[in-house]
Simulated scan of single mutants.
Amino acid sequence: MLFARTPWSGRKYFLDKMTLRELAWAYATYPAIQVYALLGLAGIALAAYWGGEPLALAAAGAATVLVYPLVWYLLHRFVLHGRTLYKFPQTAALWKRIHFDHHQDPNDLGVLFGALYTTLPTILLVTLPIGWLIGGPAAAALAAAAGMLTTCFYEFCHCIQHLPFTPKREWLRRIKRYHLAHHFHSEHGNYGITNYFWDRLFGTFYAEPKTFPRSETVFNLGYTGAESARFPWVASLSGIAPGSAVLRRGREE
């Protein structure tokens, strides 16, 4: 079976216990990252094989990179932080995997990475139409490749933001500070990962925690004891008694 035996087989990685070197290895060997990289290379190869116009290919790649932050912002704010998916047994496990678990333990690398069954359809649904409209099949392939490789970049930056490591570059230190505030001060703002333009535009950006109200639901995303009593599926999957307080998940040292 593909990826049946990898450095991830049967083990967990926690960013607060890792060095930058260890993170680089775990990142490079994670199956989803390898899939994105392979599909990115395949998209570039297809674009070259189909021989699209260079200007159209460049425009498709640039458009994808520009649209990506907006797509991430909308998904992160209204889907991942939305309070709809956990209310139905059919989608409770999906919401648990794609975001609840990450806020429960922000250092668990296994749930920091997006799930392929959600990320791949999203990337393709966004990028293929952009590329096709700009320059046909070759540009569509290039746009998809740009989406895959941009996802690799976003995922690595996201890892760095949770690693006990001080980046040398000021912009990386800055976005790390904003993202950690999203996890440990208030989840109601700073939805970007590498780009906070849309947060600024829509009024959800805060540079300093003291300027933004602290949230009591930063670790449970609003899935409180009362909500878990009404909608028990995520609680049951998480080993939490429905109706009890939903706090930050602990783990053995």
Results as ranks from 00 to 15, higher is better:
Met1Glu: 11
Leu2Tyr: 08
Leu2Ala: 11
Phe3Asn: 00
Phe3Arg: 00
Pro7Trp: 00
Ser9Asn: 02
Lys17Glu: 14
Met18Lys: 05
Leu20Cys: 04
Leu20Arg: 07
Glu22Asn: 01
Leu23Met: 06
Ala24Gly: 09
Ala24Trp: 06
Trp25Ser: 12
Ala26Asn: 06
Ala26Gln: 05
Ala28Tyr: 07
Ile33His: 08
Gln34Arg: 05
Gln34Thr: 01
Ala37Arg: 00
Gly40Phe: 07
Gly40Leu: 12
Gly40Ile: 13
Leu41Ser: 03
Tyr49Val: 15
Leu55Lys: 11
Leu55Ile: 09
Ala60Gln: 01
Val65Glu: 05
Tyr68Trp: 12
Pro69Ala: 14
Pro69Gly: 14
Leu74Asp: 07
Leu75Val: 15
His76Met: 13
Arg77Phe: 08
Phe78Tyr: 15
Val79Glu: 02
Arg83Asp: 11
Tyr86Met: 04
Lys87His: 01
Phe88Pro: 03
Ala93His: 14
Trp95Met: 15
Trp95Thr: 14
Ile98Asn: 06
His99Arg: 12
Phe100Met: 12
His102Leu: 07
Gln104Leu: 13
Gln104Tyr: 06
Gln104Arg: 15
Pro106Asn: 07
Pro106Trp: 10
Asp108Leu: 13
Leu109Gly: 11
Val111His: 13
Phe113Cys: 01
Tyr117Cys: 01
Tyr117Val: 06
Tyr117Lys: 03
Leu120Gln: 03
Ile123Arg: 00
Leu124Val: 15
Val126Gly: 00
Ile130Met: 02
Ala140Gly: 13
Met148Ala: 03
Thr151Val: 06
Phe153Lys: 12
Tyr154Lys: 12
Glu155Asp: 15
Glu155Trp: 08
His158Arg: 14
Cys159Thr: 06
Gln161Lys: 02
Gln161Ser: 10
Leu163Trp: 03
Phe165Arg: 01
Pro167Cys: 05
Trp171Val: 15
Trp171Ile: 15
Arg173Cys: 08
Arg173Asp: 06
Ile175Arg: 10
Lys176Ala: 04
Lys176Phe: 00
Ser186Val: 04
Glu187Phe: 11
Glu187Pro: 08
His188Arg: 12
Asn195Gln: 03
Trp198Pro: 01
Arg200Leu: 10
Phe205Glu: 13
Phe205Asn: 11
Pro209Asn: 07
Pro209Met: 08
Pro209Glu: 06
Lys210Val: 11
Lys210Phe: 10
Pro213Trp: 09
Pro213Phe: 07
Pro213Gly: 13
Glu216Trp: 09
Thr217Glu: 13
Phe219Ser: 14
Leu221Tyr: 00
Tyr223Val: 01
Gly225Asn: 05
Glu227Ala: 15
Ala229Gly: 05
Arg230Val: 07
Trp233Gly: 02
Ser236Lys: 11
Gly239Leu: 00
Ala241Phe: 10
Pro242Tyr: 11
Pro242Glu: 08
Gly243Cys: 09
Ser244Cys: 11
Ala245Met: 12
Val246Asp: 10
Arg248Glu: 13
Arg249Gly: 12
Gly250Ser: 14
Gly250Phe: 02
Arg251Thr: 04
Glu252Asp: 12
Glu253Gln: 07
